[in-house]
Design a protein around this nucleic acid. Structure first.
Lengths: 153, 153
DNA sequence: CAGAAAATGAAAATGGTTATCAATAGCAAA
DNA sequence: TTTGCTATTGATAACCATTTTCATTTTCTG
């Protein structure tokens, strides 16, 4: 097997002319093993035990690369710290959106009610694309509110 | 007429125990007159001719206050600079969402297809609230893509 | 109008993210 | 396998939007 082509993401990266490095592999590995949304620093800390050599700079650079190549999705929930997770195509999570607690900043993934969403999104995308002459590549749906624990406070 | 109660927002602010100041009035005025989404700096520059005394700090502080009191809505499109606009209740725009061009960062407001959205949102909010025991206060829907001009480049 | 408390401006601090640059590592070709 | 070109990296400094600090000014109540 050609070097670095053991994963879909490896194929994708080398296919785009990027090199397969231990840092990149380690970062994707952390993302693969986690079911949460991780910040750059989360990843840095997680990695630091096994790979003390990998600096924050590399994490940021790699994440940007992975976002560009469609391997990772970046989310900003308005609390000043971007969060990352593998995209549907490269991760193990299915299509989902986010429920964000404004108080404790917990993020809940949900995959419910997707039939309704897909219907709505498809229709809206089509209409918007036509009316505004826009090529729509993606969408974000976030619900904001208070989780049970924070309501009790 | 009691001092500072000439506008709905004035009533809201003083009703919440906040003072009516020239700075706050000027900031809301800029937002009222604009039909775009303004950043703190946009507002600062716009204000600087008539109110050279109002500093960026005050803009940020005031915007936060206005967001807290529900007079202003804050948006982050992932390009590192928050944008603000009056909420439906205090502005003149009706319920709308945003189409964001990833290339030129233009924001298009759209109010189309709202019937579909409201149906979908209502149903989903209700379902999510129940399933995840979440009190949902709001939602964000953004579509990302490329506008006509940027596709031509 | 006086006094208490809130609001403000200037300047410095913060904190996440990005640029710089010399050193290192991946990989294609020999 | 070795070589050589280049992409990649780490450390550090720079960035830049946003916050904090604190002394001063303004608002508003009594």
């Amino acid at each position: 097997m050609p070097h670095g082509h053991g994963h879909r993401w490896g194929q994708k990266l080398s296919g785009c002319g990027f090199r397969l490095t231990v840092g990149r592999e380690a970062i994707i590995d952390v993302l693969s093993r986690s079911d949460k949304h991780l910040s750059a620093e989360d990843i840095f800390l997680e990695l630091h035990a096994d790979h003390p050599g990998i600096g924050l700079t590399t994490i940021y650079r790699t994440l940007e690369l992975l976002v560009q190549t469609g391997i990772v999705a970046k989310f900003e929930f308005g609390h000043g710290r971007a969060k990352y997770e593998l995209t549907e195509e490269y991760g193990k999570k299915k299509h989902h959106h986010h429920l964000f607690c404004k108080s404790c900043q917990t993020i809940i993934d949900y995959s419910d009610f997707m039939e309704d969403e897909i219907t709505y999104i498809k229709k809206t995308e089509k209409g918007l694309a036509k009316k505004y002459d826009f090529q729509i590549d993606g969408h974000i749906i976030n619900f904001y509110g208070l989780c049970r624990a924070c309501r009790a406070k």
